[in-house]
Simulated scan of single mutants.
Amino acid sequence: MLRKIQIIFFWMLAGLWSFSISADELILNPSEQAYLQEQQVISMCVDPNWLPYEKLDTDGKHIGLVAKYIALIQSKLGIPIKAIKTDTWQQSQKLYENGLCDIVSALNKTPERAQYLAFTQPYIESPAVLILNEKNLTANKLADLDGQTLGMVKGYVYESKLREDYPDIEIAYVSDMEVALLDVSAGTITATLGPLFLTFAMVQELGLDNLTVVGNTEYRDELRIGINKDNQILIDIMDKTVASLTKEDHSYVRRMWAVERNP
């Protein structure tokens, strides 16, 4: 079934960068330029184990597709952007909730997160798909999973949506998406839910050829940069910077990410 996932993935790949069709020129006003000159560094919270989007490697280096975007944004702004070392997404959440990072590299916008963060426009998007073991195809859609277990990382955007929209699905919390896929493959949970882009890459790397995509859901990833909501000038700067990303910028990021994955 890996081939089936590959076909769906490549059909959707172009849509990941669909927000780049039009772009604004990056023009910072004198106050914004002065702010960047005064700052020595922009601190950033990340998900430390979310490849292919992002990860902190054993040396604390930020890698993955999102890291390539952040490197490009750093070059546009001319100021270092440094990832804060954490071991889990939950630790990063605590940091941004307490105002201890200037930005968050990539996350979906939710009402809960908007209590702490402002958001740029999306710069990556991907549909969320339902993944099952091909020997246990008991569902074609989320509504079919009532009373069954679905693996989910606590704090991920789908968690609150699932609890609201499908309260009868039993959520089995896992440490990360890799564990969720392995558990579905082993048959210890029924299904998991994740962005197609991330899911494809992980299934391929883990060699889990007994997993299959049974369908899209009404959910999707629309990844944005989150900014400390008390820092209006940085909000304006990041808004302008993400809005300035061109088709050429997105193509460059894809090439750099491909080199990282296949050196």
Score class of each variant (00 low, 15 high):
Asp168Tyr: 13
Leu65Ala: 11
Ile84Val: 15
Leu100Arg: 14
Leu77Arg: 00
Gln93Gly: 03
Lys85Gly: 12
Glu134Ala: 11
Ser185Met: 00
Leu107Asn: 04
Leu162Ser: 03
Leu117Trp: 03
Leu181His: 01
Lys141Glu: 07
Ser92Pro: 11
Lys94Pro: 10
Ile84Trp: 13
Ala172Cys: 13
Leu150Ser: 05
Leu72Glu: 04
Val157Ser: 08
Asn136Glu: 03
Leu117Asp: 05
Ala71Tyr: 09
Ile63Asn: 13
Leu95Ala: 07
Lys94Met: 15
Pro167Val: 07
Ile70Met: 07
Leu130Pro: 02
Tyr116Val: 12
Leu95Lys: 01
Leu72Thr: 01
Arg113Gly: 07
Pro111Phe: 00
Lys68Ile: 12
Gln148His: 12
Val129Trp: 09
Leu100Asp: 08
Ser175Glu: 12
Glu97His: 09
Asp87Ser: 13
Ala114Met: 05
Glu164Tyr: 12
Leu130Thr: 02
Glu170Ile: 11
Val153Trp: 15
Glu97Arg: 12
Gln148Ile: 02
Leu77Met: 07
Thr110His: 04
Pro122Glu: 03
Lys85Ala: 15
Gly60Pro: 01
Lys161Ala: 15
Lys85Leu: 15
Leu181Trp: 07
Leu95Arg: 02
Pro122Trp: 09
Ala71Thr: 14
Gln115Tyr: 00
Val174Gln: 07
Gly147Asn: 07
Glu178His: 14
Lys61Gln: 12
Ala67Cys: 08
Lys76Asp: 00
Ala180Glu: 09
Lys82Val: 15
Pro122Gly: 01
Asp183Lys: 13
Gly147Ser: 00
Ala118Pro: 03
